[in-house]
Design a protein around this nucleic acid. Structure first.
Lengths: 285, 285
DNA sequence: CTGCACTATGAATCGCTAA
DNA sequence: GTTAGCGATTCATAGTGCA
């Protein structure tokens, strides 16, 4: 392979390009994953004080100190042009949104030099029902895109979306002015040039993602929908690259990665989840 | 009135319940607005380093120190059960999203005891075009809801929306332009007035708002769509209450407030904008 | 008053070049 | 070195005018 091998990778051929480790991700990464081995990290860590039945729950006030050593390990095993996508959302405590997510992001920037490239908004079309006197249902989550350098791998063409219907009417009959670059009232060089869009039916997406949550999950309590890691994996990796989910849970990220022809590494502290992941991955082949 | 009067309020009867002040909001509030006089503050301040042609531009690194004294004044003039809605979004600097918004929110919490109740997501359906190697178009902005106490005024029924499938069916039978005209006549895409939908199934909204920015703005560089302040004014005030916009700009908030039977106070540092607001408010009566 | 065509523009960002 | 200016790139919507 010409580079350091992953300890224990491909231990089970039936696992079709997936390695699954039981344990705390900080230690597993230190022991088993060579430096700069991973092309991308996508994960949805346990949120503060949530899922206490499964993970014991991290108190919001301690979340940052709990997370930082793990992020340090992520940095060690991530390739220089790799990306780290973090799905997280704060919860309400005492009628307020707790600021631990903000504290975490600022700490990652200032203490570990992660570059905060963008904050994607995942709009959950079918969010959890409920009613409270002081707030509405929380219908969106954050997906932070961190990188280690200004130039990271990004394949924008892989996630293009159909253009709006406006173009059909508009481009069917191009007016004279549409054929010219319109520089009017923009000193900044921006001018519409509708002509550019002839023959084009796809547009680049925005940083707002509309996806429904998957209901009826058995086993793991709070997985994101498979389409979510899929989208970022296509955007930030090539085929054959390696994707890591250090809080793999039910294994959604691994399934998505393998389905897209990437290699996958999953880590979880719970033996049941590791077992479930193994079964799910095996079922793919 | 049984409470302190606003200095200079109603100076011009033609202004129909609106007071417009020229100056820095910190000073205007101290001089002209009694303590706890205002029921709600909705505003979209100049973003860091933007609009240098109009407002001089505040450097991102200095934004927090620029904003905090103003927020202190807001606190002084806001009623104990009032709300403060802040529309803001960070910008990209050197390939990263600058963290000044996070710094500001944390400072408001920790230095001034503002309660961060929720962060609404405004999804801008028609965001600015553009293509860059490292990011997609930014299609959402933040709307922070701050309060001074756990029990604030909130009228959730006023912003209920018709439930999905019925609304789509009805609008599908109208032509596209019909629908557009219908929506714009009623001012927003949310709900129009609840009375119009009696007998229909209504649902509470979520904290994600889908609204297009208004095109064809002249004069002021960055007004949010009128439907945005309208929505929050209906949610957090009653008729006859007083709404303050300390960075009033083109006066969108005032127009929205007056149209909903609220009193309005606008402050801006630019004489032109104050004049434009006066004209716009006069045109309402 | 409706339907259709056409126009204008909105809180943008990166990278290069010149000073 | 550092900064300021300008070109290039890009969609979706509201508004206006006209038949």
């Amino acid at each position: 392979m010409g580079r350091a091998a992953l300890n224990g990778f491909m231990g089970d051929p039936a696992e079709a390009g997936a390695a699954i480790f039981l344990g705390d991700c900080t230690e597993v990464i230190a022991r088993n994953i060579p430096a700069q081995y991973v092309n991308m990290i996508v994960t949805s860590p346990p949120y503060a004080d949530q899922r206490s039945g499964n993970y014991g729950g991290i108190h919001p006030d301690r979340y940052v100190e709990w997370f930082l050593p793990k992020a340090r390990a992520f940095k060690d095993c991530l390739a220089p042009d790799g990306s780290f996508v973090l799905n997280i959302k704060e919860k309400a405590v005492g009628g307020e949104k707790h600021p631990y997510v903000y504290d975490l992001v600022l700490a990652l920037r200032r203490e570990q030099d992660w570059r905060l490239v963008d904050e994607y908004c995942w709009h959950k079309r079918n969010c959890y029902p409920g009613k409270w006197p002081n707030r509405f249902r929380d219908s969106w989550e954050r997906l932070y895109h961190f990188a280690l350098s200004p130039k990271f791998k990004m394949r924008q063409e892989e996630v293009m979306v159909p253009m709006g219907d406006w173009r059909e009417k508009r481009l069917a009959s191009l007016s004279d002015t549409d054929m010219l670059r319109d520089e009017s009232r923009h000193g900044n060089g921006f001018g519409k040039r509708v002509e550019n869009w002839v023959g084009r039916d796809m547009a680049y997406p925005t940083n707002v993602l509309h996806m429904a949550t998957e209901c009826g999950h058995k086993g793991h309590p709070a997985a994101f929908p498979k389409a979510l890691p899929e989208w970022f994996i296509r955007l930030f990796t090539d085929e054959g690259d390696t994707v890591l989910d250090p809080f793999a849970g039910s294994g959604t990220t691994l399934i998505a990665a393998i389905g897209l022809g990437r290699k996958a590494i999953g880590i979880d502290t719970q033996a049941e989840y590791c077992e479930a992941m193994r079964s799910a991955v095996r079922a793919l082949s």
